[in-house]
Design a protein around this nucleic acid. Structure first.
Lengths: 286, 286
DNA sequence: TACAAATAAAACATTAACGAACATTAAACA
DNA sequence: TGTTTAATGTTCGTTAATGTTTTATTTGTA
């Protein structure tokens, strides 16, 4: 669940800032000795000082039960103020620190990580592989095997992760940067990628329908198709949440992939549809 | 009523100078004397300093059992942060985290920042500019004006900094990544950049000799020359420490630049040599 | 190359924290 | 007043984090 995101960037600066509502209406009951400030507001003040608070401390401080504090923390988590964890909670924005979106906060992170771990098993020494811009594929960079291989990518994040990997020879695709894609995306990208021959292409998608195929935006389709044409093996990484979804343009049918790696929450029907095309279906468990 | 600003950038996992979110949940039990910073975060901090940590040291330091430390290290290994080995663990790639680019640790940081601040004054609305891979030029990205303009670059760091700047349309050059250059560098890079027309090219160099010219590695020279041929204005950013230095191949003479921006520690002789070529010499004070 | 010491891994035990369901209390309201 | 409702408290089975013990691996070295 990705709650209220707010946005700032450095250098340039767009800021959609959000005004917090009083951390919910305060009732007399919620008011403590802190001169009329609600408990949750006090917690927020504490968080700003200490970055982390603990259920036990708070329940003592406010003379309420642990459960009440937990409820407070959950509400504040919903509001995007903090992140709860075993024992307490931590403020969501440690002062003046810009952290990039934490992959662990991604929805279905564990499923995606499991898929990524399975995917890297397909990489052999000296392979030339394509890594697509996609959070799941990006996770692969964390698990790349210690074998010399070549990575070609159009994802800025993948570039970054691979640039310091001593086993990786990295090729960067050109083009006009598109935020939506976290990388370059125009005709130059397509042309550049067309000149490679890949042992394997690892592709992600936001939309897969086991009957109608795999879809994406127009330019992304062109890129993926250019890659797939030049790849010995096309491997699709897709978690269960993407099934049954589709958008305008199709870049491939189910049968265009040699392997589909997904998680165990995929429906039986989708499984059946994939298997009947004789695709290597790889289901991970996390 | 307060404002809640959070910093997130989409698309990347790279974190700029960020405090890690609890490298997974922290519990009361996990909390050590390190004022609420989770043990794993502390381990991560240690890793950044020492690259390697040992189970024995850590279990003592945090007053927990070896097994707990091992479990921590495994979790962090899963997250791709480190690699475990007999006795301890080693950080995976020293820069899965970029420290605000460690720019502050750069030698002559203040001089470079002053040069960068001066350089951005040359940017006009709708300009198409080239930003070279160079720490000084990279600093420009921090000071880019709020005017719509197009940045073309072959520096991974520049790409990163610009990718979230709403005023910047970013074009990425292709090629084989070279660590030394923090970006792609091969004939494809040259060809791609040759197709642009720049209003201004901002170039850095490690070697400048006011008599013999500005030198670099062979491929870097080819790239810079391709850019300079297609640029209305060539602006060289170079701090005083680079003067009197040279390497094998020359990519330009002093007179090939319209403007040279440097700091006040440049020698009188070098100043004289530049001015006699009628170059616009721009000396900053920090 | 073999062996002792150090380290790791597996399996099990312990404890605190959690969360769902239900009970209770005290404002709010009619 | 009594009734309604939001907030809080309580109970208890479940789970997360850690510790402990036992059984493998590594490693250095004799």
């Amino acid at each position: 669940m990705f709650v209220n995101v707010l946005f700032v960037n450095f250098g340039g600066i767009i800021m959609f800032n959000r005004t917090l509502y009083p951390l919910k209406e305060l009732s007399m009951k919620q008011v403590n000795e802190n001169n009329g400030i609600s408990r949750r507001e006090s917690i927020y003040e504490l968080l700003k000082e200490q970055t982390t608070v603990y259920v036990k401390d708070l329940s003592q401080k406010f003379c309420v039960s642990d459960m009440t504090i937990r409820r407070d923390l959950h509400i504040m988590e919903e509001q995007g103020i903090l992140v709860t964890h075993y024992g307490g909670a931590t403020i969501r924005h440690p002062s003046s620190v810009i952290h990039t979106f934490d992959m662990r906060k991604e929805s279905f992170f564990e499923a995606k990580a499991a898929i990524a771990r399975r995917a890297v098993e397909f990489i052999k020494e000296n392979d030339v592989i394509y890594l697509d811009p996609s959070t799941t594929v990006l996770l692969m960079t964390r698990y790349l095997p210690p074998l010399h291989h070549t990575v070609v990518t159009s994802s800025l994040a993948v570039m970054h992760e691979c640039s310091h990997n001593p086993y990786v020879t990295l090729y960067i695709a050109p083009g006009k940067y598109q935020d939506s894609n976290d990388g370059p995306m125009d005709m130059d990208t397509v042309t550049y990628l067309s000149n490679f021959h890949f042992n394997a292409a690892f592709l992600g998608t936001g939309f897969i329908d086991t009957v109608y195929g795999v879809t994406s935006t127009e330019m992304d389709c062109s890129i993926k198709q250019a890659v797939m044409r030049n790849s010995e093996q096309n491997i699709l990484l897709v978690d269960h949440s993407k099934f049954g979804q589709h958008t305008m343009k199709k870049f491939g049918d189910i049968k265009d992939f040699n392997t589909i790696i997904t998680d165990s929450d995929i429906s039986d029907e989708d499984q059946y549809n994939i298997l009947k095309e004789k695709i290597n279906l790889n289901i991970t468990h996390c």
